[in-house]
Design a binder for these strands. Structure first.
Lengths: 227, 227
DNA sequence: TCCGATGCGTGACTTTTGTCGCATCGAGGC
DNA sequence: GCCTCGATGCGACAAAAGTCACGCATCGGA
């Protein structure tokens, strides 16, 4: 079975404050798991036995409605942790997680986690910061879905992507299209067709150019105003 | 200034495990504040200086959209705590809180809270449970708003209210109307008119009788099926 | 090089939801 | 008892969002 070492453990936000020795000890119990594209890491409703850290690749946390539509709660990048909620409230997994591309994740069992927290209260404190940030994020998401139009949510996605991952060029800000329109729809709480049409309208309005594998944001300020 | 005593402090979930002496010490620093109907306790965006425990009355946590529409994130009953998020992530208050009826709340400052956590790690653990439960609750709310119809959300509200607060009578399950239609709309993420119409339809279908001050749920199973 | 899976574009239509405007109706204050 | 105001009821519309049904392009294998 694949193993990790102390230094990598300490790159996980929750464990950043552990001593080298303690991190090495924790590493002993950490498991590395690999997933193929679209493979599931966590299934909503299943019992929880620990939490994960995404090591490589990208993933999404989502809920599936009765009609099969999905709502993405959070996108995951390397270093992000997920699956902690049921550890603390004892319930089943509140949402599903699957990977968008071949990925690896570290798995830390509930027992290990409790042990670490018991011996290092600072870890609990880090977790509180983390949970607080996620509650804040969910608050934003709820407001968006409930009080903003689909167009505004798509504009926000483009705006944030451009700010966070975009590269300035003479043509505008170039951002890789890292999600399918289907996933973009699930992210903003809509359906593929609406995303497709909205992107077309934004393109006609000269806000953004939609290319095969990338967006070129031509008017970042206009996008910002639509949010 | 009004003060509280140790035993009351220990009814707060976060502090249930404190010793009597410690609770009494904490009580020294706790402030009691009173609010009139519709008065604001927390304003979204303001700086945070501590968190609250609702002592009497009822309140709502909500966000206001650009067009003035509101989305309720959580309803508060006596004993519920709120306002903890910014304590831990250091940001401004993520949402507003106001009271639905004359209410009292306890205020515990950030400094006090940090002090208590530092000396009693078990408090941090209780907070983690609490945050986890709230993240789970938000996950449910997001799914509802994003993937279910307004009708289904209203049915759920009636169903849950009937289960939690309803009294069985020969006519059906009687539940007090504790929210205005305006607040019901903000709770389910819609507008007053739609709530009014939906209730009418449900009444015509014989699911529930809408009286001036109470609902009479006539067919709980049918409501459950609509959720 | 062909083929099937996947992703995307689009028109036409339906449904749900939200907006507007007003009438009504009690409860509580004078 | 009268008046006001918050809370409701409701019809007629408007607009946003979702559904259906296709056709088309790409891309990574067999």
């Amino acid at each position: 079975m694949l193993r990790v070492h102390g230094p990598e453990i300490r790159t996980v936000p929750h464990f950043a404050d552990l001593s080298e020795a303690e991190a090495e000890r924790l590493a002993e119990t950490v498991e590395v798991r690999s997933y193929d594209r679209r493979e599931s890491i966590i299934v909503e409703g299943d019992r929880c036995t620990g939490f994960f850290v995404l090591r490589t690749g990208r993933a999404r946390i989502f809920r599936t409605g009765s009609d099969g539509r999905e709502q993405i709660l959070r996108l995951l990048a390397p270093g992000d942790t997920f699956g902690e909620v049921p550890i603390f409230d004892g319930g089943p997994n509140p949402a599903s997680v699957d990977v968008l591309e071949p990925s690896e994740a570290l798995f830390i069992s509930t027992a290990t986690m409790f042990d670490v927290i018991g011996r290092h209260p600072v870890v609990a404190f880090e977790l509180l910061r983390h949970f607080a940030a996620r509650l804040r994020g969910f608050t934003e998401l709820i407001e968006q879905i409930s009080l903003q139009t689909v167009q505004s949510r798509i504009a926000r996605y483009l705006y944030v992507s451009a700010r966070e991952e975009g590269k300035e060029t003479s043509e505008g800000i170039v951002v890789a299209r890292s999600l399918t329109q289907q996933d973009m729809a699930a992210l903003v709480g809509s359906v593929r067709e609406v995303v497709s049409r909205t992107l077309r309208v934004m393109e006609d309005d000269g806000l953004v150019e939609v290319r095969r594998t990338e967006f070129v944001v031509r008017d970042l300020e206009a996008l910002k105003r639509m949010v």
